[in-house]
Nucleic acid binder design. Structure first.
Lengths: 132, 132
DNA sequence: TTCAATGCAAAGCTTTTGCATAAAG
DNA sequence: CTTTATGCAAAAGCTTTGCATTGAA
């Protein structure tokens, strides 16, 4: 049913390293395709980005309709259990918040609203420190 | 510089009423275009949706890359100050949560992280009561 | 009478897909 | 040797834009 085997290819590795070496920065599929540093076909870029995203190695953001999706490296930190992503609606930047308060939120949502929060997908929008 | 005048047209009114009469439901531009109930050109549908969204009458959501943006009527409620949107990653449904706990979140984000939450844009993803 | 708004079709972009070929294991 | 992954080009969507025309005030 699912994927039988998984081959490790140069292309996918290169793409992951590209993001890995630029933590905190966001790139679109088009950015990678245009990059002279990467030698990867267009279709493969899209396929790799989808795959890396669903494997949890990258995070995907969609700025607006008609605009390209942006991807960012997901570094794994010990505090992941209480991580949440914040995105600034003005500068477009994102940052990870590591705070035990996330536990409070999860507990409240589950207890009072029967809602199981998915911290991977949730993004809190607002104005960051600099833009405020 | 900005918009000089604003004309009130049948088309835009019809679109707003369409959403107004279906609170809580989400529709894409394509849905409206296909709807036999609305007689509005494609370009006008897109222009109206953009405008109504930026006027705050509708909210826009983008399910994923390559997929159409979804719009939903924004009814103004007294409890809006503490509203937050929840979206289920399994069934795709959304619901508004009205809870004073939102105040706690805002206070914490601002106080401890210098982040001003935008409740209009923020969506908390997870599993809803039924899908959990 | 003005000038914003509409409608149509064309154009623009991002993303997906089909299929032969290349490469991993 | 078998099966997955790549690459190219074509196709598919969704959204935007140009321009003549309509219609609101």
């Amino acid at each position: 049913m699912g994927r039988e085997k998984t081959y490790r290819t140069r292309q996918r590795e290169d793409i992951l390293r590209f993001f890995e070496s630029r933590p905190g920065q966001m790139f679109s599929a088009g950015d990678l395709i245009a990059s002279r540093e990467l030698k990867v076909g267009k279709a493969t870029v899209y396929r790799s980005l989808s795959r890396l995203t669903q494997e949890g190695r990258l995070s995907r953001f969609i700025p607006g309709p008609g605009s390209a999706a942006l991807y960012q490296y997901n570094r794994e930190k010990p505090g992941d259990a209480h991580r949440c992503r914040l995105a600034c609606v003005k500068c477009g930047g994102t940052e990870d918040m590591y705070c035990s308060f996330m536990g409070e939120i999860e507990r409240h949502m589950k207890g009072d609203h029967g809602f199981l929060v998915d911290k991977e997908k949730t993004v809190i929008y607002g104005l960051c420190k600099s833009c405020k």
